[in-house]
Design a protein around this nucleic acid. Sequence first.
RNA 1: GUGGAUGUAGCUCAGUUGGUUAGAGCACCAGAUUGUGAUUCUGGGGGUCGCGGGUUCAAGUCCCGUUAUCCACCCCA
Length: 449
Amino acid sequence: MASAPFQNPRGTRDQLPEDLLLIHHLERVAHEVASAAGYEEVRTPFFEETRLFMRSLGDTSDVVEKEMFTVPRRQADDAPELSAAEALANSYTFRPEGTASCARAYVQAGCAANAPAQKWYYLGPMFRYERPQKGRERQFTQFGIEAFGSQSPLVDAEVIAVALRFFQRLGFGPELEVRVNSMGDPADRAAWSSALREFFAPQFEGVSERCADCQARFERNIFRLLDCKVPRCVELNQGAPDLFAVMGEEGREHHQRMCEALQQLQATVTEDRSIVRGLDYYSRTVFEIHYPPLGARSALCGGGRYDGLVEEMGGRHTPAMGFSIGFTPTELALAELQLPVAEDLEDLRQARKAQIYVVAMTAEDRLPAMSLAAQLREQGWRVLSDLRERSGKAQLKEAAKLDVPITLILGPDEREKDHVKLRDMGAKEEQDLAQEKLVEHLRAFFGGA
RNA sequence: GUGGAUGUAGCUCAGUUGGUUAGAGCACCAGAUUGUGAUUCUGGGGGUCGCGGGUUCAAGUCCCGUUAUCCACCCCA
């Protein structure tokens, strides 16, 4: 087999300097929006024990069943052979989402017992072994927040408000729409599950009209019958019992109060019974944020309440609520909306742009030019000098192309007098300066940098 | 995991019914009265035609496999 060219792994992408301008903007807005509401950043490992995700997301979730990036742990040479199940339980998996790790860290740090009220956010790469397509990658970035320790519907409203704020800050318009639903409490779901089982049972007797996936779901995770997209299955779902019909008073009131709190938002809030997040840990509130002008691809954010997860992780019962936002769909949406506008990125652009370019006219000037550049960097300026040993003309050309405002020209004439020629690229004016006056002049130009 | 489309220079693409040394624009590099940014002009570097195999006197062009990308499904951020 001859050499195939090297390529980035499927579903990943390189983020080159040009791409990072936008990414940095998204990251900045995420940091700002989260800390403005009192959330503090946490960073957990990129991989965890596989069983963490199996436990938190649920064995029957698609993520666990077919989308995990799992690597075996090393075994001692003389260790006994492991069964497939043991090997899996003993493996590591690259995190497919952020909530499980946060809950694990929360318990491990002792928060559940000692400091239950925590407001955290995270921002970083997640991994899912999926077939890539538009808006979906195997390595992608998620921004999420998690509010631990309060049962109050006020938390639900705040978390949703933070997510909204993120999109508003990025320039999304007032068409932003929050779609909410409730999954109820465990007891509600048990009651609902029985009701659904009773309702659907006849459909699975004998030769079923249901799709193959649904046949499996009926046994494994009956709720997921409800979000099947096969047309015949959708028809057969008509008239299925509604969770709200069996939901207890507390859950109902929680939902009611949250919706009232959401009235304060600068966005439309609608009830959407079809939102049934695919992960097991959700309870009560689940929500999505959509931007309808984007059409089919309008979902930007998903989240909800997970009151049982901390306990599941071995901590004391702690209610919690969070969201996650994928940068990939957000980037696509922004591109479609022709956002962000240039001004939003201007400061980032400026911050990475060189301020000074030191031009060396002859070979003898190169070392002095380098050391002048080094001195100026020590003063805090962003300074370039030519590393390709090109002509003075080519250096000026490059400085102009990079839009560097000041060039310092160093040649035999200047060196002889211990001078340097300062050229204002915008005004196209230059002046001879004694080197000891240089910093002063530059300070004046850049406004006391 | 299933189905469909695509893959020629860093980028956007040409490339006739298979026929000699595979092209253009942009980008990059150098030069145009001996130390200076635009435009223009001249010249230059850069391609195992995704990879592997097959058919043929001859393959970028036809066939098979493979890989990657894009699109749809599943699901999701």
